[in-house]
């Protein structure tokens, strides 16, 4: 049943680092990406940066999406980026969302988070960004 001509679906990991229990946003985003034809590995709550990076490697994803509403983003996002580099997976783009003040968002983008979305962000725009980040040349 292998259909060689068909384009391989984009694979995305959606994970919530830290102890934050707000998972609505992550689920809404996961569903939107699925509806856009992507395969979304949903790793769920309370993931350590180590677990996230390991999942990204094993699942061979094209993109990682992190969601944090608890305020721990400045500690956790850079940790994920550093570990990805260490595991030679630094080429996997990372984007994120949640409650992230503008000033923090600016600094995180400089640190290498490719895009950041806050409350009320348009799902269409999130999907378009995911497509662009996962398949830059497509």
């Amino acid at each position: 049943m292998t259909v060689r001509s068909k384009k391989a679906p984009v694979r995305v990991l959606i994970a919530k680092p830290g102890l934050d229990g707000h998972d609505r946003g992550a689920k809404v985003v996961a569903r939107a990406l699925r509806d856009a034809g992507m395969e979304v590995v949903y790793a769920g709550l309370r993931q350590t940066p180590e677990e996230i990076v390991r999942a990204a490697v094993e699942e061979d994803v094209d993109l990682i999406g992190l969601s944090i509403l608890s305020g721990a983003h400045m500690a956790l996002f850079p940790k994920v980026l550093a570990l990805l580099k260490k595991e030679k997976a630094g080429r996997i783009p990372v984007f994120a969302g949640g409650i992230i003040p503008d000033e923090d968002a600016r600094r995180l983008r400089k640190a290498g988070i490719r895009a950041i979305f806050g409350p009320g962000a348009s799902l269409d725009e999130i999907v378009r960004t995911a497509q662009r980040l996962a398949r830059p040349r497509a």
């Binding site: 679906p9 996961a30 569903r31 990406l33 699925r34 509806d35 856009a36 034809g37 992507m38 395969e39 979304v40 590995v41 949903y42 790793a43 769920g44 350590t48 180590e50 677990e51 990076v53 390991r54 999942a55 699942e59």
Partner: peptide, 20 residues
């Protein structure tokens, strides 16, 4: 996989809790 979009939410990993 969704028969409509071809996409999928793969949720089994949520239960997997081995240390990294």
């Amino acid at each position: 996989s969704s028969p409509f979009s071809g996409g999928s939410v793969l949720g089994d990993r949520i239960r997997f809790d081995r240390p990294a």
